[in-house]
């Protein structure tokens, strides 16, 4: 009797950089997808042992228990400052901050802008779902005009509450930034694209090209009061026109080696920025 050999092939498994734990994310939440994409990228790059992640305050506050790399829980909004220092202490570590819209674009806006303009070699993963999820659905800095939330019960009135912050557009003006892309994860295709962007952001950091951020336009079925598929539909209909997907800055695609070189070229008419060859500033 001939032996039959069955070839078993692994087609799907948990990334090593994600721990086998139950997350606190709601059903249909996109955090789970993005956590996984980050972990897959860490696996692919083989950098788990030298990666330090910074978790925010928000729905992903417990992310320090989900990732297998070393993790730090930061105060609300302060992840970029914490990440800055970790990277300064260990410049060869891979350091990422994982932040939501309230954390990154409201209470932590100063830290966000300044880490970016300093050109810190860190990667920020930014989840924009236009609402404060963990505290139960309040207006976020990225909530859309007329969007109803617990603290904008009649819809966000821009005459009183002002306009949403468009993070990629805002950061794209800063010289320290090497790479910015806005993606989403509503379809398998967009998930693959989001992973490419996250990979590129990590590559940018590892090559020490400057600050990198990937904004993931996301959903919050629980606080939006929609099913997961309805939430994606609402997102596509309302959020994507306000937050168009795409690459907002890529210094390498623009023909520069890194953010520093691009910054130098942009300001080439300023003699202080571009010192003369023989001039010394002693």
């Amino acid at each position: 009797m001939a032996e039959t050999t069955k070839e078993m092939k692994v087609v799907f498994e948990r990334p090593h950089a994600l721990l086998p734990v139950v997350t606190n994310y709601c059903p249909g939440c996109t955090h789970g997808i993005v956590n996984r994409l980050v972990a897959e990228v860490i696996d692919e790059l083989g950098v788990e042992g030298k990666t330090v992640g910074i978790a925010p305050v928000g729905c992903s506050v417990m992310a320090y228990d989900f990732f297998a790399c070393d993790m730090i829980e930061a105060a609300h909004g302060r992840a970029p400052a914490v990440a800055t220092a970790v990277k300064r202490v260990h410049p060869d570590n891979v350091v990422f901050a994982y932040q939501g819209d309230g954390d990154l674009a409201s209470i932590g806006m100063a830290e966000t802008v300044h880490a970016a303009t300093r050109g810190e070699n860190i990667t920020v993963i930014f989840i924009n779902n236009a609402i404060y999820g963990m505290t139960g659905g309040q207006m976020a800095p990225t909530s859309l005009p007329n969007q109803i939330t617990q603290t904008s019960p009649y819809g966000r009135d821009v005459s009183k509450a002002g306009y949403p912050v468009r993070v990629c557009e805002l950061l794209s003006t800063l010289d320290g930034v090497a790479y910015l892309e806005r993606v989403t994860v509503d379809t398998p295709k967009s998930v693959r694209n989001a992973k490419k962007a996250i990979r590129k952001a990590f590559d940018t950091q590892i090559a020490k090209k400057g600050y990198s951020l990937v904004e993931v336009v996301s959903t919050c079925p629980t606080n939006w009061g929609l099913t997961p598929s309805e939430a994606f539909a609402w997102m596509r209909e309302n959020m994507l026109p306000y937050y168009p997907l795409g690459v907002y800055k890529d210094v390498v695609a623009d023909g520069y080696a890194n953010a520093a070189e691009a910054a130098l070229d942009r300001a080439k008419d300023c003699p202080l920025v571009v010192p003369s060859e023989e001039g010394s500033n002693s």
Partner: peptide, 10 residues
Amino acid sequence: NMVYGAAAAG
């Protein structure tokens, strides 16, 4: 918070 980060990093 940078102090926090650098201290966390040892």
